[in-house]
Design a protein around this nucleic acid. Structure first.
Lengths: 341, 341
DNA sequence: CTGAAAGCGCTTACAG
DNA sequence: CTGAAAGCGCTTACAG
């Protein structure tokens, strides 16, 4: 049906191997031969069959990404970064939504291995049995775990890309302390959540280092808008001297801001709020949210760079653990406590 | 390196063709042979090479989606619906972000054809030259245009999936009129934008049909938060008797709400606002936005159903134009005008 | 029910 | 610089 090397060969009166060499940019071919072949290929509208190429070369020129749900803007950013990097390298990216469902995760991994993808980005391997994880790491296809600290990977062979959460927490704490805040609330999630835990730890370190008199009140809850709302209500009731709050993520910050307004107080006049993540909504609400920028897009890019590098190195490749820089994004939700330098 | 049919054949003392038949679920094989082959395949951890299978069968079991940017929540919803339907059918979905850039669009289309994808979803073909569009439609791979009205497709051969925008506009207009509003503003975008145009047309029809005395003021601008904000400011200055506004999309509605608040008025007490799309932010803001639900996820699903159907029908397939149902989502941003039934 | 053969569309040593 | 051959890992008529 579609035109193949054989068709071009016949048309040009040469062997298919010659046609292949001409079209692949191989050097040892006569200029005139190449010119003719290229012209005929163009005229016939030849499209190489990548399936056949992949079969012989063993390379499919495709990468895959298994995430929980692309509708979560965090993953959408990641996916865009990953796809841009893949595109730049001439690779395709296949998208898989696992919902963290073990059987879907496992199904995807197998399908992808069968399709001979050259690398997989995933935000979790927890749905896979120990045997499957082992098989994956033995399979030779590079894997990078997204948004997971290096410490979280039990199996050798997996790379990781993660933001520098602890430095981010540190920056938030230092920023608030430098603004003169002395009693600071901190809203966070379960201690199971490694990234949030690191943010908390950095935050605590900052308070200790920058101002011995600053005290923090840490409260755990659900790391959602709802959770932030509930935690903030409690804090508002129980903590009278508090002038600032560091929310472990922007969602909690949004909930906190709502609770503050509903209690008849103002942000930042009465209470300063700083978040973490830098999601789009933070630029839309009033006041715009000061937060720690989490380089989601860049994480996606970095992850495929790692993948591609590994793929190029082959068996010799050794897992890489990349940590991404975070930074303060100052908007309007925090204020300086007057009377303090 | 990885285990192939040949390895299993050797191990079992049978021919590779027999192994193939056993593993493919073909009927004419002896039970005991199959049992043995299946057992050995499992023991050796055999993974079929889909590239090889694809080469012989001509089917890659993959679909692709070319959209502007996955970070736009609209496309993320679409992508999720599409991927779920693809997953259910045993297909993989490759994700391409074109930014509506002609050279990227064209690059993707060619790559995908070379990879022998079995269908492509795209939200635009405007980046492709006339020749490329022609080539695409000749290629035999099913194409569905996402969120494009059937009328927009010049070339035979392309299917479309689109929401029933005109009915949506009608519902919005009727809802407001039934609530007793008599002077209603309508914020919309450029007349180039077919979907917005259809919404406007439905809206007008509703006002005519349901209440001859209702009048509408239509204003055109950018179909963004910013645009809605600007248009609303103008309306507020110029139109005194207006009690309600229909924004052509939720983004414009958000901008309008901001403008209303800044003018010292309240939603819905002074002015009722209804949007279109039903994006997540509408549930988060105060008051929660009444809007027309646009079935984004379902559009994605429907699009791959169309694709798969075509792929199954082969050459006999004829383009299909699917229109998705919209519905009113009543929240808190519209009120009844008292004294009116 | 099973084996041997041909073929899917390419690439890549190996000769010449 | 080019051709002939072998092979990538499968499937699928064709015999038997």
């Amino acid at each position: 049906m579609s035109v193949t090397l054989k068709d071009i060969a016949r048309e040009c009166g040469v062997d298919v191997s010659t046609v292949s060499r001409c079209l692949s940019g191989f050097n040892g071919v006569h200029k005139s031969t190449r010119a003719k072949v290229v012209a005929v290929a163009a005229r016939l509208n030849y499209r190489p069959n990548r399936l056949a190429m992949g079969l012989v070369t063993g390379k499919s020129r495709t990468l895959a990404m298994i995430i929980s749900d692309i509708r979560n803007p965090f993953f959408a950013d990641l996916a865009r970064g990953a796809e841009d990097a893949a595109f730049a390298a001439g690779y395709e990216l296949v998208l898989c939504n696992s919902d963290l469902n073990p059987s879907k995760e496992s199904f995807y991994v197998h399908s992808l291995l069968e399709k001979r993808v050259e690398g997989i980005l995933m935000n979790s391997v927890s749905g896979l049995s120990h045997e499957e994880q082992e098989e994956l790491s033995q399979s030779g296809v590079p894997i990078v775990l997204l948004n997971r600290p290096a410490s979280s990977v039990r199996l050798r062979g997996f790379s990781t890309v993660v933001s520098d959460n602890s430095t981010g927490g540190f920056i938030a704490g230092k920023y608030l302390a430098d603004l003169g805040h002395r009693v600071i609330g901190h809203l966070t999630g379960s201690v199971q959540h490694g990234n949030l835990r690191d943010r908390t730890q950095g935050f605590r370190k900052a308070l200790q280092e920058t101002d011995a008199q600053a005290t923090s009140i840490v409260i755990h809850g659900r790391h959602s808008i709802e959770g932030g709302y509930n935690m903030m209500q409690r804090l508002l009731r129980e903590q009278k001297g508090m002038t600032a709050v560091f929310a472990g993520n922007d969602a909690m910050a949004f909930g906190a801001i709502r609770a503050i307004f509903e209690a008849g107080q103002r942000v930042p006049d009465d209470i300063s709020v700083i978040g973490f993540d830098d999601v789009e909504l933070g630029t839309i609400i009033r006041p715009p949210l000061t937060t720690i920028h989490h380089p989601k897009y860049e994480m996606g890019r970095a992850a495929v760079e790692v993948l591609l590098q590994h793929s190029a190195q082959g068996e010799a490749a050794t897992p890489e653990h990349r940590m991404m820089e975070v930074k303060l994004v100052e908007r309007k939700s925090c204020r300086r406590i007057t009377g303090v330098k």
